[in-house]
Simulated assay, not measured.
Amino acid sequence: MNHTNIQEEAKKAAKPLAPKVKELIERSRSVILGTVDAEGTPNSSYAPFVKLGNTFYILVSFMAKHTKNLADGKKASVMFIEDESATKQIYARERLTIEATTSQIERDSETWNAVVSELKETHGKVVDVISEMKDFILIGLHPVKGSYVNGFGSAYFVDENLEIMEHRNDINHQSK
């Protein structure tokens, strides 16, 4: 077996377990959002979240551009990323990027009440106030697929259940 084959086998053997992905999510209190408006203008923002089942929920105001984009576009990019102060290498921060579809949760529905209760428990009493404001809506972010990176040469495809599928070796880095 040559040196290149040994390196490839080592990469495959180093495949992270799904709990690594889940740990990154558990360490996060907010999610970074990428949205696009009807004209195709991109917008990035963030929102505090809770995860119930396989869905991430955010309580957001129509005063924010991303809320209209989420409600109208029905798609978003969602990112969880290691805190800069905790990273060993800024170019290789641990991160999970997810393509997601969105849904608006009906106010005072069973899901609304369960999620708002979880948001209060996770993010505090401010949720009591904002959940009563009419411009705030509850959005569900439903994972479709994504990518998990935890270092150089360590990128993986993830499925809708946030399970590692395979090593993402579609771009081979090359030196000059």
Rank of each mutant, 00 (worst) to 15 (best):
N2D: 12
H3T: 13
H3M: 13
A10M: 03
K11Y: 08
K11W: 05
K12G: 03
P16Y: 02
V21Q: 11
L24H: 13
E26T: 11
R27F: 03
S30N: 15
T35S: 14
V36G: 05
N43Y: 14
A47N: 06
N54P: 05
L59E: 00
V60H: 08
A64Y: 06
T67Y: 12
K68W: 07
G73A: 04
G73W: 05
K74H: 12
E82K: 07
E84T: 09
S85K: 14
S85V: 10
A86R: 11
T87C: 15
K88Y: 01
R93I: 01
E94P: 04
I98P: 07
T102D: 00
T102I: 00
S103D: 13
S103N: 10
I105E: 00
E106G: 09
E106W: 06
D108M: 04
D108Q: 03
S109Q: 01
E110H: 10
W112H: 08
V115I: 13
K120V: 02
H123R: 08
V126S: 13
V127Q: 01
V127S: 02
D128F: 00
I130Y: 00
I130E: 00
E132M: 08
E132S: 12
K134L: 03
I139C: 05
I139M: 12
Y148E: 05
V149G: 09
G153R: 00
G153H: 00
S154T: 08
D159Q: 00
D159F: 00
E160R: 12
N169F: 07
D170L: 02
N172Y: 13
Q174F: 10
K176R: 10
